[in-house]
Design a protein around this nucleic acid. Structure first.
Lengths: 125, 125
DNA sequence: GTTACTGTACTACAAATATTAATACAGTTA
DNA sequence: TAACTGTATTAATATTTGTAGTACAGTAAC
């Protein structure tokens, strides 16, 4: 399916997340298409299934896939459907604005605080 | 000058950065005003000078102060003057963009990932 | 020059956190 | 039941982070 650099400083679960994101964003994997099972992919890549699981969990929390116990993990339709270009645009805008904010001295902590405000959730340190 | 919570989970150098930022933003410290030397403040707070140094370095990299070897550290004039309105504007833009992103189904987790990407600058192995 | 201040760089070490793995649990389908 | 699926818990490592100890280097006053 793809290759990993096992001795990179970048953790393999993170490499996995990136590669899979690419496949989803670039339509190589279609809506609701089943991803390899954690064990299958693990065996194929000669790593621990739990590492795959971590990558999948991350992808799920970011809205790229959904997982069903006993069934499998699948490409999340919403992510792909309507506003793909719009989504890409917003992601780029976010990155630009982050850079600008940080250039002005706004800390990532403050940015996260703003995010929480919008989200409505409440948290503390 | 101020108090620190030595047994907080938040590192003391970070607490220092926040407190000092407050003093600068709220005009308690004026442009080009000298901050306490790293050793002086360290002794006063009963912590290691290097911890102060780390806070100062952070403040400098964020544009709040500037340091001159052998002379001291001082409040950076630029930070205070022009950027105040700009800062408010960027904060508003961030909130708007967050709302839009979440409306499109981008999760807060993904936003934080994007933030980390920008924050880290490009780093690989 | 010497002295007494300044910031800075380098190293080290303990604590916290992150990464991966081993194992066991639980749902689905035939 | 058997053979798949994802998930939770725990533990062993590896890596990062926070702080400190020490030495180096510039500035200013004498």
């Amino acid at each position: 399916m793809f290759e990993l650099d096992i001795r990179s400083r970048k953790p393999i679960y993170e490499q996995l997340v990136e590669k899979l994101k690419q496949l989803i964003i670039n339509d190589v994997m279609k809506e609701d298409e089943k991803l390899p099972s954690v064990r299958e992919l693990a065996q194929q890549l000669t790593i621990n299934p739990n590492t795959i699981q971590k990558a999948y969990r991350e992808l799920e929390s970011q809205g790229y896939i959904y997982s069903l116990k006993g069934k499998g993990s699948f490409v999340h339709p919403v992510t792909k459907s309507q506003n793909k270009e719009e989504l890409t645009k917003v992601r780029e805008e976010l990155k630009k604005l982050f850079a600008e904010a940080m250039y002005l001295g706004i800390t990532t902590e403050e940015i996260q605080t703003l995010l929480r405000e919008v989200e409505g959730g409440e948290q503390d340190d």
